[in-house]
């Protein structure tokens, strides 16, 4: 459970806040999609949740509170999985196989060897990396590297899993594998999913936080966002939604079947 109260942050020597007055409450097993155009403050917000701003950007000014599990104590790095935007920088650089790369963080946290082996197998199969097990991480393609970066963080079984634009280097198959994995993972982890891919976000997340210029424009379900008066022109919406909006539908649906039925009805009445 995460409760955020009036959280704001400004980098040192910056004129405006990177994000401001963000308040939300997230239950365990929920996924929050953080959406918005570039420079909206999404990554900085993720850094704040992971405790990086407090530790590495001390010149900046952070106000407000983040409460985890009703305690004023952030989870440790072993309990947080953080997938950064550039997956190639996330690889340790000191391992020589995909298997060792997944094991790297488990080794650092002293996870017993038998559990470590179980988790490696689990991640290799979940992210379809079994065939790449003995490949050098540097020889992987962009999409495979991204999957490996996610797998290495997922192997920690984090309580809070933050993913910063994880689908940007992935093809459609990989995106499907990732979403399937996260749907299962959110039963035991709280997921913060920062994305430009609205289709994946709406499919996975119970709630979305829409940021623009660092300001909280909307917090609620994806369905409520699409049916509100909020201007979402800065977002690249799925075609399914674009079609409904351009046809002037009042009640936008995220469900494919329902939309097709509505379109059929429209055609009949026309």
């Amino acid at each position: 459970m995460i409760t955020i109260k009036d959280l704001s942050f400004r980098y040192k020597q910056e004129a405006r806040n990177s994000f401001e007055h963000i308040s939300l409450h997230l239950q365990d097993g929920q996924a929050l999609g953080v959406i918005g155009p570039s420079q909206a403050g999404k990554t900085t917000f993720a850094y704040a949740l992971a405790g990086l701003l407090q530790k590495h950007f001390r010149g900046g000014s952070l106000t407000g509170t983040v409460i985890f599990d009703a305690q004023d104590q952030a989870p440790g790095t072993s309990e947080i999985g953080f997938v950064f935007q550039d997956a190639s920088l996330q690889l340790s650089g000191v391992t020589e196989t995909v298997e060792e790369e997944i094991a790297f963080s488990l080794e650092q946290f002293g996870v017993p060897r038998d559990i470590m082996r179980e988790r490696i197998e689990e991640q290799l199969s979940t992210f379809h990396l079994i065939g790449l097990r003995y490949r050098h991480p540097k020889t992987l393609s962009g999409g495979e590297t991204q999957m490996l970066a996610i797998a290495s963080e997922a192997a920690k079984h984090p309580r809070l899993f933050i993913l910063d634009e994880p689908t940007q280097a992935l093809d459609a198959d990989h995106v499907r594998h990732l979403i399937d994995f996260l749907r299962v993972a959110k039963r035991s982890s709280t997921i913060i999913f920062i994305e430009q891919n609205m289709s994946a976000t709406f499919e996975l997340c119970n709630h979305v936080l829409f940021l623009e210029n660092g300001r909280q424009q909307f917090l609620g379900t994806p369905h409520d966002l699409l049916n509100s008066n909020i201007d979402v022109s800065s977002l690249t919406l799925p075609e399914l939604i674009d079609v409904q909006r351009s046809l002037g539908r009042n009640h936008i649906s995220l469900l494919f079947k329902e939309t097709i039925e509505w379109m059929k009805k429209c055609r009949t009445s026309a």
Binding site: A50, L52, H56, T77, S78, I80, G81, F82, F84, D86, L89, Q90, S92, G93, E99, E100, A103, F104, S105, L106, E107, Q108, F109, G110, V111, P112, R113, M116, R117, I120, S152, E153
Partner: peptide, 25 residues
């Protein structure tokens, strides 16, 4: 810039973890 990003990523990989390291191999 990459060095800074890497240092943040390494933190989540537990490079500063006080736990006794157990290696796969």
């Amino acid at each position: 810039s990459q060095g800074l990003d890497r240092s943040l990523a390494f933190e989540f990989k537990g490079i500063e973890s006080p736990a006794e390291k157990i290696y796969l191999r």
